[in-house]
Design a binder for these strands. Structure first.
Lengths: 242, 242
DNA sequence: CGCGATGTTTTGACTAATCAAAACCATCTA
DNA sequence: TAGATGGTTTTGATTAGTCAAAACATCGCG
């Protein structure tokens, strides 16, 4: 049974690996930063993970999960996201705070308890932020998503994920009603101003909201089936988040 | 913030202390055994707890919690028992298995989550085994209980607690319907046979059950208010269990 | 090519928690 | 009183995880 430290390394490595372009290899400095340790610590930890077959590692070439490491990482993610959902749906915590809570609980939930949670929530496929929940056999539902800096203008899109766990950001999103499931349109983009202007789709008139492109990129959307969609300008979103 | 190891030492020390007659002092061997470490380990750990003011310790004289240590221990117990109740009431786990699960979760539940659990369960005062749940300010509801080897014969008593966390024992108890809230009478005791014969009080006839005195002592009961009770032969039960 | 900047690895040291086994003490017993 | 006994404490060693800081690669640039 891996220690909770090991679980954290695997989890963060998985997440960074999804973002990485360069052959899924993650520089140890990035990993160290994500976990919150010094680079040297990450190096030595990764070396021991490599000898236990969970990670492949070439000095100065970065690390990458083996199949064994990846399936462990997915189980950690599954625990994390199901716990988040439990905290929101059953215990009524705010979605902006469940991430931190789940960071501790994800290491203490047994398989038995996890499956009870899963059943009680009706085998959900995404957590409160829209992040997909790996199934018991390590599958991830791979929807194809765009973000607000890429999607078509003036077309109704639905928020599928909010890809940042920062509580302040999540509170901002919630305050403007920008949560998974909400429909909106991108009205305009202004590259010079680095701005994206959106408006929530609703029967009543709503105010426009202007976001910087960094924030806009955190909202991953899908074209709603009801509108006449064409396959165009749609990039594959990375499947990761907290 | 105490480590989960420290929390375990405090919790077990508290529990043993309640059982201890001799001035609440707990021999370190007993503590070591309860925690599952070697005696030497307990000695060194207790010494460090003593220097941090959570425990008073005299070499070869045993250990005892300070006020600070005790209030920490109570908070651990509160987490443990509320989590047990959550697992049984909300997630539907069996009462025989929640103790082990709670052993891990009790160290990962934040105050915020704990208070949500407490509220959702309606601020309960006992856990699924009838063990009292310390309140936020460290109070324990102190009911006066007898056990089946002490209580009066042929009087209806109600099971208030089942003071053993062993899953096999709990399954046995459940199988015979011997769970908190159930009314029964002790029909006879046979010291020579070390046996206690009881029968569940019910409108329909029920079979008699014969227990050894060790098992019988694990069922703590209170005289039901409905029967005409006298204050007689009622010993103070210790307030502890897992 | 050579030199810095940047990021990575090594080194040496530390803390928390643990064990095995030796040393120790306090009694109880002959 | 002298052992023997049973529990307690010490000692010395180990493992996981971590940091600070020195040493080391690599790559881009002049």
């Amino acid at each position: 049974m891996p220690t909770s430290t090991v679980e954290d390394y695997l989890k963060h490595l998985y997440i960074l690996q999804q973002r990485a372009r360069t052959g899924r290899r993650v520089p140890l400095g990035k990993l160290a930063e994500a976990i919150g340790v010094t680079p040297g610590t990450a190096t030595s930890m990764i070396k021991t993970l490599a000898t236990s077959g969970l990670v492949r590692y070439t000095p100065r070439g970065g690390a990458r999960l083996t199949a064994a490491g990846e399936s462990l990482a997915l189980m950690v993610l599954r625990r994390h996201r199901l716990v988040e959902l439990l905290l929101v749906k059953v215990l009524g915590l705010d979605w902006s705070e469940v991430h931190v809570e789940a960071e501790r609980l994800e290491h203490a939930v047994s398989d038995k308890v996890l499956e009870k949670i899963d059943a009680m929530l009706g085998h959900p496929s995404v957590d409160p932020h829209g992040d997909p929940i790996p199934s018991l056999d390590g599958e991830l539902s791979g929807r194809t998503l765009t973000n607000l800096t890429d999607c078509q203008l003036n077309r109704v899109v639905r928020i599928a994920r909010v890809a940042d766990q920062n509580p302040l950001f999540l509170q901002f999103a919630e305050h403007h009603g920008l949560t998974p499931g909400i429909d909106l349109v991108v009205e305009s983009r202004d590259p010079a101003a680095d701005a994206v202007t959106i408006r929530i789709a609703s029967s009543e008139p709503t105010a426009a909201i202007t976001l910087g492109s960094i924030a806009a990129a955190k909202f991953l959307v899908e074209v709603t089936r009801t509108s006449n969609s064409r396959e165009e300008g749609v990039a594959t979103a990375n499947l990761v988040g907290g």
